[in-house]
């Protein structure tokens, strides 16, 4: 039993225990906090499994944005769950056992965990992504080159999903639903907490700087547009929580936010369309410059920025929608 296995099993055991506790807890604030813990441990496990980019994202999304949204949702609804009646337990247990049984049965023919000789590792994709990409694209972080170039369409789709979520939340909760903004001050903006305000004001520039670093450093280390966007959004969320929503919305007016949501998406699309006009296929960044690798660099940078813009704008909008909802009630 190696150290790796030991840590791996411990983290997995913590995850299972946390999940069981979450499923049993009827106090939903506690469940929300525990699911944040769950995400944090998941992020550690991702690091252990060499998925640093994913860990970064899980930490930013699972621990950050998801928790904030869950707490926001809980603040607007009820925080205690009714007892699950016995008759409801059976169907869930039956489906879970059936599906779980199928999974375990099937896993017998899965390649061994960590095997270097599995079909995944033997497929020519591996060599292309890890080695050929260094010549074609020239970016050390292969996750970024696969994400933004080889599978750029998936990433456009992912951005579209974020966009859809933004539109959906706006349609459900946004100021569109309640044209009149008769808001009162309440303790959501934590105005009494002087220490918090001083420290937050001090950290704010660094948070935004860090977001930019994550955006532009995604070529060489973990990070990229999505993580950067989420960190930006987290910065705005913190600002809104500490200094009040009114002030936050003065800093980033709603009009700007709403213009940025489609702007990022259109920028991504625009890069692809320019590629088409230059004679390549959609998202073929080679066409952007006489030197294909330079073109790839430029294309990936533009695309990552586009992701950052839309993600930051959508996440901020979603948070403001939830927070404003509370104030209008």
């Amino acid at each position: 039993m190696t150290v790796f296995t030991l840590i791996n099993i411990s983290l997995l055991a913590i995850l299972v225990a946390t999940a069981l506790t979450v499923s049993r807890l009827r106090a939903l604030y506690e469940a929300a906090m525990l699911s944040a813990l769950f995400s944090l441990v998941t992020a550690c496990l991702f690091v252990l499994l060499d998925a640093v980019d994913v860990a970064f994202t899980e930490a930013a999304v699972g621990v950050g944005i998801s928790t904030v949204l869950l707490l926001g949702g809980l603040a607007l609804t009820r925080s205690r769950e009714a007892v699950t009646p016995r008759r409801r337990r059976l169907p869930g247990a039956a489906v879970a056992i059936l599906a779980g049984g199928t999974l375990v049965y099937a896993s017998q023919d899965l390649p061994a965990f960590g095997s270097a000789d599995s079909p995944v590792q033997r497929h020519p994709l591996t060599d292309t992504y890890l080695h050929q990409s260094q010549e074609d694209i020239g970016i050390p972080n292969t996750v970024t080159s696969v994400l933004a170039s080889y599978r750029g369409l998936d990433t456009l789709g992912e951005l579209l999903v974020v966009f859809t979520a933004g539109v959906a939340v706006l349609a459900l909760l946004g100021p569109l639903a309640h044209p009149v903004d008769a808001r009162r001050r309440d303790d959501l903006d934590l105005v009494d907490y002087r220490v918090l305000r001083v420290i937050s004001a001090m950290l704010m520039p660094f948070i935004l700087l860090f977001a930019l670093y994550v955006l532009f450093h995604g070529d060489f280390g973990p990070g990229g547009g999505f993580q950067a966007g989420v960190i930006f959004a987290a910065g705005f969320v913190l600002y809104g929580l500490v200094f009040g929503l009114d002030k936050a919305q003065q800093v980033v007016p709603r009009v700007v936010l709403w213009a940025l949501i489609p702007f990022g998406l259109l920028l991504y699309l625009g890069v692809g369309v320019v590629n088409m006009l230059l004679g390549g296929s959609f998202l073929d960044y080679d066409t952007l410059s006489s030197d294909p690798a330079a073109g790839q660099h430029l294309g990936i940078l533009l695309v990552e920025s586009a992701i950052g813009i839309t993600v930051a704008a959508v996440m901020t909008t979603v948070f403001f929608s939830f927070a404003n909802r509370r104030a209008t009630r």
């Binding site: 934590l190 009494d192 907490y193 220490v195 918090l196 420290i199 001090m202 950290l203």
Partner: peptide
Amino acid sequence: LFLALTGPTASYVLAFAARR
């Protein structure tokens, strides 16, 4: 540095909120 700034602040805010 970051931990030195945020850790105590978080503890303080928790205690302050509980007190309030």
